[in-house]
Design a protein around this nucleic acid. Sequence first.
DNA 1: TTGAAAGCGATACCAG
DNA 2: CTGGTATCGCTTTCAA
Lengths: 354, 354
Amino acid sequence: MKPTLQAVADAVGVSRSTVSNAYSRPDQLSAALRKKILDAAQQLGYPGPNPTARSLRRGFVGAIGVLFTSQLSYAFTDPFAVRFLAGVSEGAERHGTSLLLVPLPVDRAEVRRAVENASVDGFCVYCVGDEDWVLDAIRDRGLPVVTTAPREDGGPGDRYVGIDERAAARSVADHVAALGHRRVALLGDTVLPDAPPGPLRLSAPGDAPHPTTRGRLTGFADAFAAVGVDWSAITLINAAGNSRPAGSAAIAAALTGNDPPTAVLACSDVLALGVLDALAEPGRQVVHPVSVTGFDDIADAAAAGLTTVRQPAEEKGRIAAELLLEPPADPAAGHVLLRTDLVVRTSTRPVPRS
Amino acid sequence: MKPTLQAVADAVGVSRSTVSNAYSRPDQLSAALRKKILDAAQQLGYPGPNPTARSLRRGFVGAIGVLFTSQLSYAFTDPFAVRFLAGVSEGAERHGTSLLLVPLPVDRAEVRRAVENASVDGFCVYCVGDEDWVLDAIRDRGLPVVTTAPREDGGPGDRYVGIDERAAARSVADHVAALGHRRVALLGDTVLPDAPPGPLRLSAPGDAPHPTTRGRLTGFADAFAAVGVDWSAITLINAAGNSRPAGSAAIAAALTGNDPPTAVLACSDVLALGVLDALAEPGRQVVHPVSVTGFDDIADAAAAGLTTVRQPAEEKGRIAAELLLEPPADPAAGHVLLRTDLVVRTSTRPVPRS
DNA sequence: TTGAAAGCGATACCAG
DNA sequence: CTGGTATCGCTTTCAA
């Protein structure tokens, strides 16, 4: 049995409170006594105050939970997520706060349990898919939450850090439209739950359930509507997952069909790079060059010459952590919108004359 | 005040145990009563059993601590570390275990406190530098630990997953030596604590305090000793940090000096890529092509054509997690050595004839 | 099935 | 500066 604080107290012949003070409030006892206690503890092999017991008593843990509405390894696999986390960890580190990465089970009921079991002071939710139900589970815990996508029904303490998805998406799409592209395809990840990879019909961009995807598709549509291209004339393509291979697989058919698009606008850089991969495949020669755009501006985008929208990944994470750790006095300050920038590179070109 | 289990019990008119059972052991009470309790809880806004209290009582947390002997953001900045973590998270996820990323303060005394304050069932330590003192703090907690570098004085329960650093390093160095290189430079990160970037004298490779660096330098030295090149004839260069810019900065002077090395062997891919960056800089034309090798085989290595040693990053992480979560019955199985492979690409060429 | 009682290991207030 | 006491919120025999 591991010795407890009580054991140390007995050994030294003082009360528990004194031993506790020796650890947590050195100024509350004489240096000599403190040393005596610490020595005895060392000698007994007392590992120091049990952190769980301490948290219980203090009503505070010193950790924030980070949830990915996806497999946990997504957090380390997706380039944007990694940078976001780097930012979160930076913010947390500044406050001496730990990060608890909680894996979410696939089963909904178990998700509740996972959320309920996390010893944390608050949650930071990185929204990958449509996750209102996850947010509900968290909200029921009654802890502060910060999300990366706006909530429809955010309560008073609702905190959020993001970008104006719609405007940002519009900025790239405007660029593409200005280059003369009219026959375009939009590529999104899991536009509808369980949709297979490939073309997908959606009566309006606003029908996409996931807020981020919805915002981006709507922004794309806005730009083309402005030049007279109706939503119904735009090809929407679904990718099964946010990864390069998923992007390649999803776009493949569209590129080889007759009348392929002259431009593909993807909802993420990863998907866009997948499109470039598909375009580069020997078998997949398209009759004309295809312009491609991404979203995020991850590291690989620059080398690939990908035109994209930059959003400040690390800053987003850092602010998320700070929103949790230093709650703004003014609740209105709980919603932070970051700036985005259109980054034009070589992957977009004027529409080829036919 | 948030309602407690007691409040729910009072509201329903049952005892606490019954409410507790409603949550944790559904089979211990009638479905009807359980529903009644859960409804009441919902109605009262009871957030479910407090995870901290539960952990205290159960003596088990359901989380493992992950420590980086460096800034926490290193975990998300260094490509190899990220892949390692992806592996750890995969292993943890399989067990429904969370990951607690604990930021380590710079101050040693505070490190102890940080370690002592982490509510976890075990620790996984990613060794960046010379961290015996961190390991000591952890060991004093009396929790299981798995490290990525062997410990000199590992106790009985000592768990470790790594590679044969020395042999792996030797394999690249043998390749370089076979190409005829004799005037070589070795590049390592923080070879000695607080050493400035640039050339460094070490009487023997074994003098490097950090076990990983020591192993790699020794392996490099082995290979050259075998072809008659003495340690004293080898240039050792220190980089201030494991990053591309640090690599560039450290090597710069050596490349422009007279009699520059014909080959540079770096202790990591990141440093090696930094060397390639330096070589590519307009001002830095070297009189002859310089061969460069790395270590790890991160994603960027392939694109850069970097010759390197591959070690299975994700697997390393996954095994680390498993070693913690499914302690091997046979203590000897607590030490896992992974295989490495020499990957020859275009960054190494035969020594130029002069 | 249900409930009473005994902790899990520590902290904080308040006398002394 | 030190110690008694109440309590943090829950789980778990064990008996009814």
